[in-house]
Every structure is written in structure tokens, then in C-alpha cells.
């Protein structure tokens, strides 16, 4: 792929995900409840949900592949294509907008030269704007992978990007 991200063509759970899946199986009386969980595990393993992983999840949870595909395309957190190592997600809903989230989006576009939904050529950063993250009292917020960065300013965001570039 042009942005240096590799498509995954073979997949099965990592050892850690396999163990967690077995734990989760004990907690739900119906296996289909594990579809969303399994997809979270896939993303923890490889960052997105390729076709092969959908087939794998279908087989693990006893549902059809089209069921899994329907779920993947329904929920916004499941990435349909590879994303960068750091996924910068800027909330652009009302409270974040009132407190300057537009400037955060501009800072990312300026600094990394990518638009919403795009990934940098080195595969390091993906940028998305997202809906309300429930951080309105400490807005604007940027979610980077699992972490919230609250009361963000363009300056602090640029510093954060510089820091992540070094990692």
C-alpha cells in the first residue's frame, strides 16, 4: 500500500488474545455475544479487521461471515483498513467545537499533511474526526489509541506529535 501499511493476509488470535477469548467464553451463555469482543481482540493484535479475520471470528463465534462483516461495518471503532501506529481522533462535536477543536484539526493537517481518514506515508499517524467522546468538561479532546488527551491546545498537540514521532 502507498502509505507503507501492510495488508494482513493470514490471521489467528495471538496467544494473549486466545487466552482472553477463552476467559470471555465463560461469561456469556451464547457464543454470538463474543463477536464484538473477538473483533476487539483482533484489533489489539493487528490494528484493523481484514477479511481473513472476519472469517476467523465467524468460525470462532459460530455465526456467518456476513454477520461479522455487518458488525464490522456498523461500529465506527472497527477499522476496515490498516491505520497508523498512532490514531489521532479529534472530537468535533458541539462542546469541543465551542472550545476550539477546529484549530486542533488544522494543526494536524498542517503538521502531518493528512486529511480526515488518511494516514501519513511512514504509517505512523492516522487522523480522524470523531463524535462526542464524553470529555466535554475538559474539551477539546484528542483520543490517541486508547488514551484521552484533554484540554488540548494546538501547541500541546504539536508537541505530542513530535514526541510520538520519536517513539
Amino acid at each position: 500500500m502507498s502509505n507503507g501499511l501492510q495488508e494482513v493476509t493470514e490471521y489467528s488470535f495471538s496467544k494473549k488474545s486466545d487466552e482472553r477469548f477463552k476467559e470471555l467464553e465463560k461469561k456469556f451463555p451464547e457464543k454470538n455475544s463474543l463477536v464484538l469482543w473477538a473483533l476487539h481482540l483482533v484489533q489489539e493484535d493487528i490494528g484493523y479487521v481484514p477479511e481473513v479475520a472476519m472469517e476467523y471470528v465467524a468460525q470462532k463465534t459460530g455465526v456467518s461471515k456476513s454477520w461479522v462483516s455487518g458488525v464490522v461495518t456498523f461500529y465506527s471503532m472497527y477499522n476496515k483498513k490498516p491505520v497508523g501506529k498512532y490514531h489521532l481522533q479529534v472530537c468535533h462535536n458541539v462542546s469541543c467545537w465551542l472550545n476550539g477543536s477546529d484549530k486542533l484539526e488544522e494543526a494536524i493537517k498542517r503538521k502531518l499533511n493528512i486529511e480526515h481518514g488518511e494516514t501519513t506515508n511512514d504509517g505512523k499517524f492516522t487522523f480522524s474526526h470523531v463524535e462526542c467522546l464524553a470529555s466535554c468538561g475538559t474539551s477539546p479532546v484528542v483520543q490517541v489509541n486508547n488514551d484521552y488527551h484533554e484540554k488540548m491546545t494546538p501547541e500541546k498537540l504539536e508537541e505530542l506529535i513530535d514526541e510520538l514521532k520519536q517513539k
Binding site: 464484538l36 469482543w37 458488525v71 471503532m77
Partner: peptide, 8 residues
Amino acid sequence: ATYRGAGA
């Protein structure tokens, strides 16, 4: 037990 949503 917990259940994690996925953005909806």
C-alpha cells in the same frame, strides 16, 4: 461481567 461497545 463487562461488555465493550465499539462506537455506536
